[in-house]
C-alpha cells in the first residue's frame, strides 16, 4: 500500500480527504521542481519524477473508484484493465431505465429540476454502494474481495451516468 504510506495515512477505503490534501501539499512543497530550479539537472529530474509520482498517488487516492481499485489490486484482485461485464440482470435493467430517463431530460419542460432530481437519485445509489464497499473491502477472504470488486464494477456504471448527466448539463449551458 505504497500510496497510503506515501501520505502517512491508514489503509482504508474511507479516507480523510482533508488529511490527504494536507499531506499532499506538504510533500509537494518538499519535492516540486520549482524548489530545484537552481539545483543540478540530476536533482531537477529527480524532482520531476517524485512530484509526478505524488500527483499520481493523489489522483488515485482522491477518487473513490480508483482508490477502491487500487486497494483491491494491492490485495490481489486487480480489475483495473479488465473487459469483464457484469452478471447482474436486475442491476443492468435498472441502469437501462436510468439511461432512458437521462435521455429524456434535455427535452423536458423544466430540465434544471429534472437534472437535480436525477442527481439526487444517483447520489443515493452511490452512497449505498460506498457503504457496501466499506464493509467488504477490508476483508481478507477472497470471496469477500470478489464481491467488493463487483460493487466497484457497479460503481463504474454510476460514475459513467454522472459524467453523462454533466454532459447534458453542459449542453444546456451552451444553448
Amino acid at each position: 500500500m505504497k500510496y497510503f504510506e506515501l501520505f502517512s495515512l491508514p489503509i482504508n477505503f474511507n479516507i480523510d480527504l482533508a488529511l490527504l490534501n494536507q499531506a499532499y501539499l506538504r510533500l509537494q512543497k518538499t519535492v516540486h521542481p520549482d524548489k530545484f530550479a537552481h539545483k543540478s539537472s540530476k536533482e531537477q529530474l529527480l524532482a520531476v519524477q517524485k512530484s509526478a509520482e505524488i500527483n499520481d498517488a493523489l489522483h488515485v487516492l482522491k477518487h473513490p473508484l480508483k482508490r477502491a481499485e487500487y486497494i483491491l489490486a494491492e490485495r490481489g484482485v486487480d480489475i483495473r484493465a479488465e473487459q469483464q461485464t457484469l452478471q447482474d440482470p436486475m442491476f443492468l435493467m435498472q441502469q437501462m431505465e436510468l439511461r432512458e430517463e437521462l435521455e429524456d431530460i434535455s427535452s423536458a419542460s423544466d430540465p434544471e429540476d429534472e437534472i437535480e432530481a436525477f442527481e439526487k437519485k444517483i447520489q443515493m445509489l452511490e452512497k449505498d454502494f460506498h457503504q457496501q464497499l466499506t464493509a467488504l473491502i477490508d476483508q481478507t477472504e477472497l470471496v469477500q474481495l470478489e464481491r467488493a470488486a463487483d460493487v466497484v464494477r457497479k460503481l463504474k456504471f454510476i460514475y459513467k451516468l454522472r459524467d453523462e448527466l454533466e454532459r447534458v448539463e453542459d449542453s444546456l449551458l451552451d444553448d
Binding site: S8, K29, T30, S40, L46
Partner: peptide, 21 residues
C-alpha cells in the same frame, strides 16, 4: 559529478519526504 551525486540526491529527496510528513 552529477552522476556521482545522484544517489545522494535521491536519498536526500526521500529523507525530506519523510521529514515533511
Amino acid at each position: 559529478l552529477d552522476n556521482a551525486s545522484s544517489d545522494f540526491a535521491a536519498r536526500r529527496m526521500d529523507d525530506s519526504i519523510k521529514k515533511a510528513l
